[in-house]
Design a protein around this nucleic acid. Structure first.
Length: 448
RNA sequence: CGGGGCGUAGCGCAGUCUGGUAGCGCACCUGCUUUGGGAGCAGGGGGCCGCAGGUUCGAAUCCUGCCGCCCCGACCA
């Protein structure tokens, strides 16, 4: 992509309303634009990141055995009366009336709807288990939205729902999601820690929040340092195998959010040097809630004895749009974002230091074409702006690599590669630089 | 929802107390000079001063009402 064709409204100054660094950088880097309290338009650069995160989430859900579908944003109130939540949910639910004066709502979550869909099509325990998910926009009329996309009213969320014949089977579904989540966040460059947590107003008794440590996190968290060093399950993990030992390894160390924190237990189970007391961002939440919806909504299957049995359900959320902010919180410096390769809006920023100079233009075009041909996503700054401005804005948008081409270097037969993560620079012949970038990008994107 | 604050050019802000023809920096446009880390000079464009009503010869400024946004708290992916 050429910058001259792109829509990238950068801000030199930080808008006053942005309090945390991810919000500030998303505004400055032209990723989002606010349309109302907690409501954001995703501009081209931000949208690319959102899509990449979404795709990783999708791949790992599929790998774990979940099946994608799509439910609507607007739901009839009737469905929520069945579960009893229409009145219980309160003002967070955005209620709407259609032209026929029918009561509708903009979905804050989809348990009711998925339960209705499930019961309409599954009759026998032999068809279980089922894991269904979708990635859809939700709306919760938060009392106080803040921190940009980290806590918007409208947000993109992946939610999976599991249906099982009994609690032991439901546990296996839960474990699949547990492992899938560890992989999902790791692929985005995040270290997530599963923590015991309250299950929230949705109900349930087995629940983990996946927390990314960050100074600006909303909740106080307490955990064992050794959790940070645990291996992430590989992409070749057999999800049909018994995952319990793997889960046990993660839940064997103390980790809890403020609500579930027990200082005495923390001290007993964790040596002083291993105790982490920090703040965290909740990026995912998994929980089992049994028959909470299947009972009142009569989602039943015929069991082995021919009797109807309400299914045991669980629900598993990932805040997709929130993750964009969370990743920036984890990867940035004073100059701007530092995207991990897997979620970077582009892999490489190509900087033409002297647009209009024939040799420089030609070298840039050659590099641009070669990189694109090799499958590398290139963002080419082909504007006539001055070098300093180009460096600054490329640092701000934070692509993993910068390929800098100018007349001075070319005269010496060289171009420069700068790695955004650590600032390391390398002068190479143009062909060598291209080769190098291609191999490093491919290596970074290789699945682990 | 309780408490606090703010709405003036795309962004950051001054001007409001004490009413008198709306300013600064950045950004933008034109020209010249520059050109390897956000250039210099000269010229220029852009505002129903959040909205509505009121007071006044005259309102960004005073009064009333409304709307929007931000911060702290309780709530949430």
């Amino acid at each position: 992509m050429r910058l001259t064709r792109y829509y990238l409204p950068l801000l030199k100054e930080t808008p006053a309303e942005a309090q945390i660094v991810s919000h500030q950088l998303m505004l400055r880097a032209g990723m989002i634009r606010q349309q109302g309290a907690g409501i954001y338009a995703w501009l081209p650069l931000g949208f690319r990141v959102l899509r990449k995160i979404e795709q990783i989430v999708r791949e790992e859900q599929d790998r774990a055995g979940a099946v994608e579908m799509l439910m609507p944003t607007i739901q009839p109130a009737e469905l929520w009366r069945e579960s009893g939540r229409y009145d219980a949910y309160g003002k967070e639910m955005l209620r709407i009336k259609d032209r026929g004066d029918r009561e509708m709502l903009f979905g804050p979550t989809n348990e009711e709807m998925i339960t209705e869909i499930f019961r309409a099509g599954v009759r026998s325990y032999k068809e279980l288990p089922k894991l269904l998910y979708h990635i859809q926009w939700k709306f919760r009329d938060e009392i106080r939205p803040r921190f940009g996309v980290m806590r918007g009213r409208e947000f993109l969320m992946k939610d999976t729902y599991s249906f099982d014949i009994d609690e032991a089977a439901a546990r296996r579904s839960y474990n699949r999601m547990f492992v899938a989540y560890l992989r999902t966040f790791a692929r985005m460059g995040l270290t997530s820690i599963p923590m015991r947590a309250e299950s929230g107003p949705i109900g349930g008794d087995l629940s983990h929040e996946f927390i990314v440590l960050a100074e600006t996190g909303e909740s106080a968290v307490f955990c064992d340092r050794r959790l940070l060093d645990l291996d992430i399950p590989g992409h070749d993990t057999d999800f049909d195998a018994d995952l319990q030992p793997l889960i046990d390894r993660y839940t064997g160390y103390y980790a809890a959010t403020e609500e579930k924190h027990d200082a005495g237990e923390f001290e007993k189970r964790t040596s002083e040097g291993d105790r982490i007391s920090a703040r965290g961002i909740e990026v995912g939440h998994i929980f089992f809630f049994g028959r909470k919806y299947s009972d009142p909504m009569k989602a039943v299957v015929a069991g082995p004895e021919g009797k109807d049995i309400p299914v045991e359900m669980g629900s598993y959320g990932i805040g997709v749009s929130r993750l964009v902010g969370a990743i920036i919180e984890a990867h940035h410096d004073d100059a701007g974002c530092k995207w991990p390769m897997a979620v970077a809006p582009f892999h490489v920023g190509l900087i033409n230091l002297k647009q209009g100079d024939a040799a420089t233009d030609a070298a840039c075009e050659t590099a641009y074409a070669a990189l694109e041909k090799a499958g590398v996503e290139v963002f080419y700054d082909d504007t006539p702006a001055r070098p300093g401005e180009k460096f600054a804005r490329m640092d701000l948008i934070g692509l993993p690599y910068q390929l800098v081409i100018g007349p001075r270097g070319l005269a010496a037969g060289e171009v420069e590669i700068k790695r955004r993560a650590d600032g390391e620079r390398l002068a190479l012949a143009p062909e060598a630089a291209i080769e190098r970038i291609v191999s490093e990008v491919k290596a970074a994107l290789a699945l682990r």
